[in-house]
Amino acid sequence: MKLNKKHILVAMPLVIITYLMVIASLSPLRFRNQLHQKALSDSLFMLSINPSFSNPVVKPLVKTEAFKQSMLQLSRYDSIGLSVNLPDSSMMLKLKGVVLYESNVVDFKIDPVLKGLRIAAYLNSFSRPVQSVASYSSFQKEPIVVKKAPATPEEALAMATLPDSIPLVPAYFWIELDCGIRLCVVQDDWKGSNEGKVRRKFKSDLRRLKIGNVFKSAIHPSAYYYTPTIIVETNADAAITIFRALPVLTKLSLMY
């Protein structure tokens, strides 16, 4: 059979799409494998792993123990940290072991890659605090208002404004962690039309990042890009309070 232009035009997109599908499927598996390999390569750590840890009765206790160990380390840092306990549906701001603020997790969604993580890889990743490397939010971290100094008392009087509370804006933020995971905290109720817009923006931002990762992996197949995401829903107040309280580079204890 002779190949003509038409055949090539049909085959090209098919090849590209198949390639994208292969890349999209392999990236998360490779990410997970990397976490498994990281755990396996730590021979001292692997000595502490017991086959009974995978037992469904023991597993939650092992995870709780790891979380407590992580919180204990978090308590030794002198800046505000976040502890997220998804089985208990709670998020806490902590400073030197003192709970500064607690908020309820209304709902959460865990990436399937993290759900399928073996217990050794889980413990290796989460039995100590994870460090944030970048963050993004739909609201200002510090709502700074610039005011020019008045030249005269009359000008000062004219510039005087009544103080107002910080407006409650549609709130979401995410934190990229050094272990390659993204933690998204989103407000749970979206009522106003502006909030609808922000929610759509949140979803499209996440989609854009996911698609971007696939294309980056397609261009550089040896270096794969995949960022498993944990989406946590809480009330808007809590999302704003937590993000504003956290330092730019913060530490987190995570349990799921």
Partner: peptide, 10 residues
Amino acid sequence: LPFWVQQIVL
């Protein structure tokens, strides 16, 4: 489609 396939594979 790549993300559907990704979810199925996972």
